[in-house]
Design a protein around this nucleic acid. Structure first.
Lengths: 333, 333
DNA sequence: CTGTTAGCGCATTCAC
DNA sequence: GTGAATGCGCTAACAG
């Protein structure tokens, strides 16, 4: 059953015009206190609630946001989404969720559908689209925040994680612990966050007077199995390794398994660090030292940025860099 | 920028009436092939796409679904959501996601907002609302599918997991393996799925000529720490236990940790089983034998049920019971 | 303070 | 085959 009672019903029942009802509902325009009360009573009695559809058509505001992610079942994006929905809820907005499933074509399609639905704002995570095409599609939106994606030559608000700082933290922590012979499981080269984390590692080593060139390092798939294989190879080639710095927590879990199978004790023989701080990190044995990427907070802040844009008159756009936080656990005390 | 070009622009540019354009866009009504082609050209040229808002106002169809869950960052609900969005996408619909954060008040609020937005259908997971109030709120929707929630005395489509069968599978597996002294970490009493799984355990034991009454069992929080404490107590009280059946995977991970700290080898001394098959289950050491609850598939099927309702004329409503699947891994081979 | 007129962008109903 | 009216439910801009 779609909404029965309309503003006209209320107006009739209260013996006033549509506009008067509209005024009390939206709390604008002058209405005498007595009629306001009467209208409010009728509204309560009839259970009237305005149609956001009709309202949106005329106000050009739908109180609606779009969130586009590669895959909600990835905890990282689920966390972001939860943050976004939290502020949306607090500000009486609803959020459309779209998965791209890593397909640029699907991404384009959902972006268009969101535009057709007249969302007030868009949060786009890890877009896989080409710069030029992306820039063009984004023109269809009044407010946009990009997460984990640059867009050169276009002023769109962006929220990024400071992966480089995170990479630095991890290595500095190990160096403080006296480990100097550090191996790296670097994740895929194609990953921007991977490259940034690597830069952070390098910087920390340089500060300690170590050169990254001499250091055992290997690229691997960003998964448990990638970490398992990578760690095995690295530990065989360099038996003197005292610590393994991993691209992310999954890789670190693989490294953990590799150490176990090779009879290397963690952390006494080999310390291990991950990145992201997914649930898993605290639950494996030993629990992982890692660098927390605050996904929920990223969602919160991106959404606040977006709402700000929506309500602002100017075209100014703010960027944001979120700092990851070192979490020390037993795998690298 | 909101949509610039409207149907009127197209009509003018093509030298036809609005209706003709509408007809070719919606592919209904008769249009001569020549004008259809011309209109299509203009549409492509101008980049016209109809406003779903305006369209929805008159057709009373918004091509929009609502999904309400306690918390998207829970992998179970994220998986469902992904399934729902998959079929929604395939059928040109968008989905609103709402978190209730376990609050019945917030649940009511988001349900109303969804109704105000005129969603065509609603998928509601693990509703915490009272039967009566829930029934009343659901009247505001044309199509509804409930997941993980009964609603007595009201015919709403429901998708449930056969937790009882799952509970049975797990115990039967252990019995087949020759373990007869089985302990149970049952999760909270308040959980319906917990009670059902328990019933399944009992049935399997009964079939094997064992009584559930003699069996070591304990309620615990559905978390790693709950499992850890529970398992410790149970193993101390009943040192002869050969297997631990856990309410879910988190509890099982806790039990794993308890065994480790007590020096009990898994699975040789004690076999352990979980439930759900979250990511974690395969990644701990040893990997968990568990019962997979197919969350993505649940989402898919719930959404299909919903779309079916949306397009059906009759009021008939279908229910669905999804079977969980035993996954045998090293923790209980 | 209140009501009237108009129109958001589109599809349904009926003429032609 | 095509077009002109009409209205979905609501609010903006004026009147009174």
């Amino acid at each position: 059953m779609s909404r029965r009672v309309t503003i006209a019903d209320v107006a009739a029942a209260a013996g006033v015009s549509l506009m008067t009802v509209s005024r009390v509902v939206n709390n604008n325009g002058p209405v005498s206190e007595t009629t306001r009360q009467r209208v409010l009573e009728v509204i309560a009695e009839l259970g009237y609630r305005p149609s956001e559809l009709a309202r949106g058509l005329v106000t050009r505001r739908t109180r609606t946001l779009g969130v586009v992610v590669p895959d909600v079942s990835n905890p990282f994006f689920a966390g972001i989404l939860r943050g976004v929905e939290q502020v949306a809820y607090a500000q009486n907005h609803n959020v459309f969720l779209c998965n791209t499933e890593e397909s640029p074509e699907r991404e384009l399609t959902v972006l268009q559908s969101l535009e057709d639905k007249h969302v007030d704002g868009l949060i786009l995570c890890s877009s896989r689209m080409e710069d030029e095409q992306l820039a063009k599609v984004l023109e269809g939106f009044d407010a946009v925040v990009l997460i984990n994606r640059f867009l050169h030559g276009s002023r769109v608000a962006t929220v990024l994680v400071d992966d480089q700082a995170g990479g630095r933290h991890v290595v500095e922590h190990l160096l403080r612990g006296g480990r100097r012979r550090i191996g790296f499981l670097d994740g895929p080269l194609s990953s921007q966050s991977g490259r940034l984390r690597k830069a952070g590692h390098r910087a920390a080593l340089a500060d300690a007077g170590l050169s990254y060139e001499d250091v055992p390092a290997i690229d691997c798939a960003p998964s448990v199995s990638g970490g398992l294989e990578g760690a095995r190879r690295l530990l065989r080639q360099h038996p003197d390794i005292e610590a393994l710095v991993c691209y992310n927590d999954l890789v670190a879990v693989g490294a953990l398994q590799a150490c176990f199978s090779l009879g290397r004790k963690v952390p006494s023989d080999v310390a291990i660090t991950g990145f992201d701080d997914i649930e898993l990190a605290a639950l494996v044995h030993p629990p992982l030292t890692t660098c927390r990427v605050p996904r929920y907070e990223i969602g919160l802040r991106a959404a606040r940025l977006l709402m700000q844009q929506i309500h602002a008159d100017d075209e100014d756009v703010e960027d944001l860099v979120v700092q990851p936080e070192l979490i020390v656990r037993a795998s690298a005390p």
